[in-house]
Simulated scan of single mutants.
Amino acid sequence: MAVAPPSQETTNSITRSSGPVPSAEVGNAAAQVTSQQQQAQAWTEPDPRPQAFLPTAKTDSVPIPSEKPVALLMPVNPVISAAPQTRMQIYSRRFRDAKPINFGSSSPRKLAVHGVDVSRWQGEIDWEKLQTQGANFVYLKATDGGDHLDPMFKKNWRRAKEAGLKRGAYHFFYWCRTAGEQADWFIRNVPREAGALPPVIDVEWNGESSCKRKPSREHVLEKMKVFMDRLERYYGQRPIIYTAPDFYRDNLRGEFADYPFWLRSVAAHPSQVYPGRKWLFWQYSGSGLTHGVEGRIDLNAFHGSEEEWHNWLARSN
């Protein structure tokens, strides 16, 4: 069987924006030495059991079995604390795109709740202005591996909350560090707060990384499960899995059916790129343009109506 070519899709974790970038150092020399010494421990985590495969959720235009949106099907998560629940205002999508795609009748514009994800490459952000353009939620780059912290994370975490956006944090998984080390690093740097969105594990093949290792499917699933279990115990929320087409094809097809997925699909509807996979978020563009940010930004949409968004938020906290 012919092997499909590697995906050309990347995220802002590994792609430099055209906007201004604040200078900062990440990690340190001692941490880098530690990273090299601990690479040999990368396969020490316990073996998880693969999850069963489930049919896909309903979309606007693709003729697939009818069922409720995935937002209604995810498992209920434990509560961190009894924070009062108030419904947020939903802002309509006003983003533009430097490389617009015609998705036809399955356009993400038909989805009610849009948001963005950002890292240091977006530089200084006017959060209030960004929100009015349709950023109802944001995922912030927090950590890489076991010793890198995005230098804008703490400021973005605070400012996004002050502006009223629902925000969460994501971790870019590094295949040359143990899952336990990476979970501990994320927990050390990302606050456990009522009202925050569930944490995200970003799993991709990254050709720009200093780690050239491509573990077997078995070891990929093993390491992911250890990391996700640790975060779920600490935050009381089931983590969301973000991935791209080539990594999904190699490792995740048919796996982790009881986890929410955030899928990158910038040229077609997720049902065409990830057949049979339920999804919670769709990253439909890596070339978004908007007031409040200089340069390009990733655009995302929630799989459900406004009502389903509010219901999902209530169950996630």
Rank of each mutant, 00 (worst) to 15 (best):
P5T: 07
S7G: 15
T15N: 11
R16I: 14
S23Y: 14
E25V: 13
N28F: 07
Q32F: 13
T34V: 11
W43E: 15
T44A: 14
P46A: 09
P48M: 01
P55F: 04
T59G: 12
T59Q: 07
D60P: 09
S61E: 13
S61A: 15
P63R: 12
P63M: 09
I64S: 13
P69A: 08
V70G: 12
L72D: 14
P75I: 00
V76P: 05
P78H: 03
P84W: 07
Q85T: 11
Q89Y: 05
Q89G: 06
Y91G: 06
S92G: 10
R96Q: 15
G104Y: 02
G104Q: 07
H114C: 00
S119N: 03
Q122N: 04
D126P: 03
D126R: 04
K129W: 01
K129Y: 02
L130I: 03
Q133Y: 01
G134D: 03
A135M: 05
N136W: 02
N136L: 00
F137T: 05
K141E: 06
K141H: 14
T143I: 05
H148F: 14
L149N: 06
D150F: 02
M152F: 06
K155Y: 10
W157F: 10
A163N: 02
G164D: 07
G164P: 06
G164K: 02
K166H: 13
A169V: 06
A169K: 01
Y174T: 14
C176P: 07
C176K: 09
E181H: 12
A183M: 03
D184Y: 05
W185N: 08
N189P: 09
V190C: 09
V190E: 04
P191F: 05
R192H: 11
E193L: 15
G195Q: 03
A196M: 12
P198I: 02
P199W: 01
I201C: 10
D202Y: 01
E208P: 10
C211Y: 00
C211I: 01
K212I: 06
R213W: 08
R217P: 03
R217L: 06
E218P: 02
V220W: 00
K223M: 14
F227M: 12
M228T: 08
M228Q: 10
M228N: 08
D229P: 04
E232H: 07
R233T: 09
R238L: 07
A244S: 14
F247L: 03
Y248G: 05
R249W: 03
R249Q: 13
L252H: 06
G254M: 01
F256I: 00
D258I: 02
P260C: 09
A268E: 13
P270L: 07
S271L: 05
S271N: 09
P275R: 07
P275Q: 08
F281Y: 09
Y284T: 05
G292M: 04
G292W: 04
G295N: 01
D298P: 06
L299H: 02
L299V: 00
F302W: 02
S305D: 11
H310G: 03
R315A: 08
R315K: 14
R315I: 03
S316N: 12
S316F: 03
N317G: 11
N317K: 10
N317A: 12
N317E: 14
